[in-house]
Nucleic acid binder design. Sequence first.
DNA 1: AAGTCGGGGTA
DNA 2: TACCCAGACTT
Length: 351
Amino acid sequence: MSSLSGPPEPALDVPAFRAALLAWFDAHARPLPWRAGSEGRRDPYRVWVSEILLQQTQVARGLTYYDRFLTAFPTVQALAAAPEAAVLKAWEGCGYYARARNLHRAAKLVAAQGFPDSYAGWLALPGVGPYTAAAISSLTRNEARAVNDGNVRRVLARVHAETTPTDRWVQARADDLLDPARPGAWNEAVMDLGATVCTPRRPDCARCPVSAHCCAFRQGDPTRYPAPKVRAAVREIHAVALLIGDAHAAVLERRDGTLLGGLMGLPMEELAPGETPAAALARLGARLNAVPGAELGVVTHGMTHRRLHVHVHTGTADLPRTPVSSAALSRLDAKAVALYAERQTSLFPPA
DNA sequence: AAGTCGGGGTA
DNA sequence: TACCCAGACTT
């Protein structure tokens, strides 16, 4: 393994790397609530819930939802017995709502069959992919499975000075490095390093326990690795919605499909290509047998891959209202409902 | 392999 | 603004 553009890099000293990182972890592990219990023998329900919550979600944010979720559903039996609407209410605002629906579906399986006892068993559950199955099986049974998440990808890309690590490449390097004596602690150690020291923008190499083993550190600019991922362009979406009722009780629909699926929200119609808001509003009114009224305002809501602009109108119809506080709403619908309260405030400003 | 799916943190 | 976050699932 030689390079034409520079001196050959020394081979990675795996035992020294493992010892240095685990010593650092033993001294600096983050005290996270799902880490209660002895190493490699954690409670499967608590670990499982945390891993689903933390998918594409930063730890600081996951913490707030973790307490709320475990209070609502302390055991897998409680979760399995709950209605889906209650599960989504606990997940409200956390995003990627398929996670909550899959977790609920899987809880029913686990309540009937017991917890899986292996990587393969966890992988078979809905919502559990390679990362989550590796995390749970290593943390609860010390199974020797290496996790591959955003932290691991970044740390290993820098250690090996790899600009464009593929998923297969990362998994192979992680498998090589995993400490078979302490799989659970090892996985947490790499992720803690990535989250607190080997960060995306400003890695703190002076405090890194494995900088002596890092190719990117030797080269002098760790932030070159990995190269940014190319992302799909953000699409602009325009829609109209009806607020029939008020900020406390309104006509709400359950959103089917993949976008905000399972949540409740104001009746809404997306504008067809070339369609005017007025035409879409008429379409929406006809669908509900409702009469649209004045425009309350426009809500703009960004969602990574698209940006929604929703014209919210009042409306009248003889339809049942749902208490807003009891329903699981997305942030988008929360903003739309808030327009009503804003209108009240502008008409009757507080003294 | 590429798209899709939320919402917010950070520089 | 750009890029990212303890990824999984569909197409």
